[in-house]
Design a protein around this nucleic acid. Structure first.
Lengths: 250, 250
DNA sequence: GCTTATCCGTACGCCAACGAACATAGCGTG
DNA sequence: CACGCTATGTTCGTTGGCGTACGGATAAGC
């Protein structure tokens, strides 16, 4: 264990058959992903795709008046830059590192080549994309119908699922930006959760004390998204990739 | 002109190179799509994909408590059933006919076969999917930040873009269901638009009198989505399909 | 031509979230 | 250790949308 980093910390990469994994991993480049960094900007041309391992990235839409809203969140289960293989090259949203950590990146060209083989890599990426679509759809629903507190629970759980520890480094101001609500709204909601003994926080560090408790509070949106990710990417962890992905072979 | 119906009324089908179009069109089946029909249910297995021509279909998510919200809208520019080729087979949302009309359907198996050729059909479908993703993302943003009136404008314009006439058959109650708001909220917003001379309506018939006026009222969300559809599917109408889609050929 | 169902208008109280402003409280740095 | 910065707490008036309720109006059917 020379390095604590390995591409297989990313579930998509880990799910690849050996052939494909080896082909890709030669071209993967480990990079730090500091808090606040924008992996790509609205409308910007994508130079790389990113596979987070220990970081979390938000897909954020910033409106003309400066207000913002998170569209989806991507961590070690996914990839950033789907517009590249979907054919659009760019998207109207930004990708901002929400929780600092590491990830691997791959040149746009390399990914496209691999995708165009129309093999397991392509099918895996498309499945992931569908899971992402579900997350976006559910975000829309949650924005429409649920309270700030419920959304905060959802957001905490989604983040937790993508980290190894139950600790997030994240100010309430930042969370408010992600959720597209006022900072005060987050303060109030977080205060409630803290008084209920579910979380503890101070100055940008949040510890989740009672995850099952959070899951009782959260709206259905979290469960729907989680279930769909599990369903679509179930074949992934461990197992024989040749078998689990075998159905995709011509 | 024996029939007023033709597959090329659907822009995706119209954008296909001749080879692909002919292969598919032999298997297309014209079907009426009556108001309220559910093309597929949440979690249901997809038997067909649908290419609307004169109808409009909403992707709708219905929550546990019965409240609902529209995720996206699909008309003659698109296809229903993307989960099929994305690999998930099902989605957690419903597809409900929002404006009666016609469309063509294709057996799931046929579409998959065509998709798996990894040729122009695949690339076109993926591009469309990305446009759809943009629409979903923008719906999430709009739900978060914009007023019922703005959303109504957006919704009217999106529907208008998918119809030939500036008349929609649509009660305020139904619109409310789509937008995930109260019927009274729609009444109020629609009343404002009517007093402003932008629309006229009575008992389920809405006429758009002043489309440019509506475009002045609408939030940026409409424009972003429109622009992205235009950009991603620009190659589509008319033109030489062999040239416009040439870039996709290996 | 009458009833009935459907669609639309309006009103009332209520509450979550907003915008703005200001108060405390940890923490780092000089 | 004092200062300043940043994160969090709290307040107050405002507002947009909600739930509920009911009245009027236009089509549809017998």
């Amino acid at each position: 264990m020379a390095s604590p980093h390995h591409p297989k910390q990313n579930h998509l990469l880990a799910a690849l058959p050996m052939d494909e994994f080896e082909r890709l991993s030669a071209r993967l480049e480990l990079i730090p992903m500091p808090l606040g960094e924008a992996l790509y900007e609205s409308g910007g041309r994508l130079q790389h795709v990113y596979f987070p391992t220990t970081s979390i990235v938000s897909l954020l839409y910033v409106m003309e008046n400066g207000a913002s809203a998170e569209i989806a969140v991507v961590g070690n289960e996914g990839i950033l830059g789907i517009a590249l293989f979907m054919g659009g090259e760019t998207t109207p949203s930004r990708a901002v590192v929400q929780s600092a950590g590491y990830g691997y990146r791959l040149k746009a060209q390399s990914l496209k080549e691999e995708f165009n083989r129309a093999g397991p890599v392509m099918h895996l990426l498309l499945r992931y994309t569908q899971a992402l679509i579900t997350q976006m759809a559910q975000t829309a629903v949650c924005n429409r119908h649920h309270s700030v507190e419920q959304q905060l629970c959802r957001w905490l759980l989604l983040s937790l699922d993508r980290l190894e520890t139950p600790e997030l480094t994240m100010t309430q101001e930042l969370i408010a930006n992600m959720l597209g609500v006022r900072r005060e709204g987050v303060t109030e909601a977080a205060g409630k959760l803290q008084r209920a003994g579910l979380i503890r926080y101070s100055r940008g560090r949040i510890s989740v004390l009672d995850r099952p408790g959070l899951e009782l509070e959260v709206c259905e949106c979290y469960r729907v998204v989680k279930k769909e990710f599990d369903r679509l990417l179930a074949d992934i962890p461990g197992g024989d990739p040749f078998q689990t992905l075998g159905k995709f072979r011509s």
